[in-house]
Deep mutational scan, measured.
Amino acid sequence: HDTTVHINGLRIEVHGASEEILKWIEEAARRGVEAEEIKRWVEEALK
């Protein structure tokens, strides 16, 4: 999927993410993980 995830006011563009990654992002956000940190993880995961 190409999608934009909104976390604590930060937009994260996610290209080619699976449902699993999207669920993981939402879970991390709920746990209060910094949005910048999530963004870094997602970029690494999608390389």
Rank of each mutant, 00 (worst) to 15 (best):
E37C: 06
G16V: 04
G32M: 02
A17I: 10
L46M: 12
V33S: 02
L10M: 10
R31M: 14
E27Q: 06
E27R: 03
I25G: 00
W24A: 04
A17G: 08
V33M: 12
I7Y: 05
H15S: 13
G32T: 00
I12V: 07
R31P: 01
A28H: 02
L46P: 00
N8P: 05
E13W: 06
H1N: 13
G9I: 03
K47P: 02
V14S: 03
K39I: 13
I21S: 01
H1E: 12
I21M: 09
E34I: 08
E34W: 05
E26H: 10
R30V: 13
R31V: 11
W24M: 06
H15R: 07
A45N: 09
V14T: 09
G9F: 02
E37L: 11
V33A: 05
R31T: 13
V14M: 07
E44T: 08
R30N: 14
I25V: 09
S18E: 02
T3D: 12
V5F: 08
E44K: 08
E43M: 12
K47W: 07
L22G: 01
A17H: 05
E26N: 07
E13A: 03
E34M: 09
G9E: 06
S18C: 04
E36I: 10
E26C: 08
L10W: 04
V5H: 06
I21L: 11
A17F: 07
G16W: 08
N8F: 01
W24T: 01
K39V: 10
N8M: 04
L22S: 01
V33F: 07
T4S: 13
T3Y: 13
A35Y: 13
R11H: 14
A45K: 08
W24K: 01
S18G: 08
V33D: 06
L46I: 11
I21W: 04
A29F: 15
A29N: 09
E13L: 02
V42L: 09
T3E: 13
L46D: 01
S18L: 07
V5R: 02
R40T: 06
L22N: 03
I21K: 00
H15W: 15
E13H: 06
N8I: 06
A35L: 12
G9Q: 02
G9D: 05
A45R: 07
E36T: 11
E20F: 12
G9V: 04
W41H: 08
W24H: 02
A28T: 01
D2K: 13
E37T: 09
H6K: 09
